[in-house]
Design a protein around this nucleic acid. Structure first.
Lengths: 152, 152
DNA sequence: CAAAAATATTTTAGGCATGAAGTAATCGGC
DNA sequence: GCCGATTACTTCATGCCTAAAATATTTTTG
């Protein structure tokens, strides 16, 4: 009967926990590496694509707006961690990729990041973590499906 | 052995799901009510305290910075949804509370909000929602405890 | 092929977020 | 009763974020 209240409560908890972890990550990234979560996310995406990603692809992967990607890429580039490379055959497009310095820096950051997460989610056993991750994936898939439907 | 990888994966899923739902909420709030998630959050907090909240209390409840609260309260006030009331006996402090119009508007928004969440979390049964919410609460408590420790 | 449509990116305007600095009022100890 | 410390709030500088407009370059189409 009051299922919707239970779901609402679940959502509020989900939000609280996620925001809490995000806030701690932000702090740690700032303290230890003088960087931010958006920069880290972009570098993570780029590190999974050593050949580079087009701006629009990056926008899609990170699920943030085009304009936003421009700004973050600008800052990473200014710091020498990423670079823009023209795409042969399409003068509109730009590839972004990590520089060697960017790869080195991200390697350090990613290692620390994994440790922090491990600490913060410490009271989930490996099993529990896997089960919950699977459950959440199912939810994410439902979401994506609806998104697709809406886009028609 | 690779428990940390499982936890990392759990975190990435948690983040993806939460951000996805947040993005949809943002859209819906914008489309249906010309408002934003931060405004909604503040109104929700105020609606739980009809007598009003001091700026600093609001900052604590919403877990955002003082300066941030100032801006959002400014905008709600400009729209006639909230008002600042001086605190008798302390000329530094200000109470913020919903106006009648604010209460009426929030009532409509909250109802829609509950419906959206119910849709988005539709594939959790009431039971499943309760179980997961409980599990997340335990995690949130551990977090708060650590925060306390760090503050010493 | 030229005009129109589509694509890739940047720019712009406005809101949200932080930490730090600034302003004003209150409190505590003497 | 005064003065330094604390408290409450706002302002500032900077970055993140979005949607929408602008720019530049393909691609499509009549």
């Amino acid at each position: 009967m009051t299922t919707s209240k239970d779901r609402l409560r679940l959502w509020l908890r989900l939000l609280k926990v996620t925001r809490g972890i995000e806030a701690r990550l932000r702090d740690a990234l700032r303290r230890e590496f003088e960087t931010t979560l958006p920069r880290f996310d972009m570098m993570a995406a780029l590190s999974r694509h050593p050949e580079g990603l087009k701006m629009s692809a990056l926008s899609g992967v990170l699920r943030v707006s085009n304009g936003n990607v421009t700004g973050i890429a600008d800052r990473l580039t200014a710091e020498g961690l990423a670079e823009r490379v023209p795409v042969p055959g399409d003068r509109r497009a730009m590839m972004v990729r990590l520089t060697d310095a960017g790869v080195a820096e991200f390697t350090r950051q990613a290692q620390a990041h994994e440790g922090w997460i491990d600490d913060m989610l410490g009271d989930f056993s490996a099993d529990e973590a896997r089960t919950l991750a699977t459950r959440l994936m199912r939810l994410a898939e439902t979401q994506d499906k609806e998104e697709m439907t809406n886009a028609l």
